[in-house]
Write a protein that binds this DNA or RNA. Structure first.
Lengths: 207, 207
DNA sequence: TTGAATAAAGAACGATTGTTCTCTATAATT
DNA sequence: AATTATAGAGAACAATCGTTCTTTATTCAA
């Protein structure tokens, strides 16, 4: 790590960027960082560029660099039995790169209903779909049935291909879908993102 | 639609933005759009702002507006098909932007175990945790109990605060956790990302 | 044919930009 | 105590910025 500790500056800039979706001018960065001299702000920006958190955009402006969107990954959390909070060195991960391998063939599809709840796909989630025309049985596919998109498991029996829901509790609500005419595969389920709505009000929890 | 056809300009700007991840100055926009006069470029930018394709960022600069990432006409739009599948393009919008609100206070944690399966949190998922020292009951928290990380629902009764699992089927495997000494909140569960392993081999599925 | 929108260019403005250079505190090291 | 590197401030510069005002070409309906 360089002598100058740029991480606090980086953190504030990252927060600013997610708020405003822009890397501001040196003048505004000075305000954000509580730096009086624009020259010093300029120096910090240079360090951030050296570390590839920022880079030069055409026109002399700065934009996020490759490392700007790196997120720290904590130690494994045993959601079952608790696990030692071992101090493993923090890993870094870029969410977009992690989830999306072929940007041009990938779309996001919002989920309605609970027919796939057994696979951990809830209403309001966004599934990541990679375009494909074919699939194999057992795969989760986004299919077009009767002019509507639906996310189901592709299955096959003597009657041909059909689509299955994955909801044990409400299985009778989701009978297998056997297409009238054609079963058209739109893409494959390759991932999922979920944003939870956290209530703003917070109470203390120490005891 | 306004008389001035701004869509060709918007298209070029979207392409530029995908490449450079920045909305350039009027001067550079003039070059991009083959417009001789910066004043005219400025007028087009104004129209784009009126239509909310662009908006003002602090400092008088322009940034993408709410409609910038809208897919105008998809390549595969079919009569009758709901547009919902194609309304967000990962090429233009970073998933990261969608999920992370406070980068400097956000950490990802990989999940092991199935104690939170009823909330759609599966083994191998990564939960997005926003650091916080306090939480309210009912919230999903990443807590440190007896020096160990665990993701659970914060609950409270006459005995004080405790942690609940969410797995109906294996409830007996996950009894409520009552901390010996202290229940320390590390952060709040604000989102989740999942990458599924898709078998590479693909068979045809038309019939 | 006239007249009004519209599309585009040109000129000019003060403000802000990124950058550089010089100077001064503060902290660490010798 | 002296030295040296770091952290920060201040001033100054030309270039570029967003913006406004004015002028010219083009289109198209009346």
């Amino acid at each position: 790590m360089q002598p100058l500790d740029i991480l606090p500056y980086l953190g504030k800039l990252q927060d600013y960027y997610t708020r405003e979706r822009i890397v501001p001018s040196t003048t505004r960065l000075s305000l954000l960082w509580n730096v009086k001299a624009r020259s010093w702000t300029h120096r910090i920006v240079q360090r951030l560029k050296e570390e590839r958190f920022l880079e030069n955009a055409p026109g002399g402006r700065a934009r996020p660099g490759p490392r700007f969107f790196e997120r720290t990954v904590g130690p494994m959390v045993r959601a079952g039995l608790p696990q030692q909070a071992a101090d493993v060195q923090p890993e870094l991960l870029r969410i977009d790169d992690y989830l999306i391998e072929n940007p041009s063939r990938t779309i996001l599809f919002p989920i309605k209903g609970d027919s796939m709840i057994d696979l951990g796909i809830l209403e309001g989630d966004m599934v990541i779909i990679e375009r494909a025309n074919t699939a194999s049985t057992g795969q989760v596919v986004l299919a077009i049935v009767d002019n509507e998109f639906t996310l189901k498991v592709l299955a096959q029996d003597k009657g041909g291909y059909y689509l299955e829901a994955r909801n044990e509790r409400k299985n009778q609500d989701y009978p297998p879908i056997r297409p009238e005419q054609k079963l058209e595969i739109y893409g494959l389920y390759v991932g999922l993102i979920r944003k939870t709505h956290v209530p703003g009000h917070r109470l203390s929890a120490s005891r």
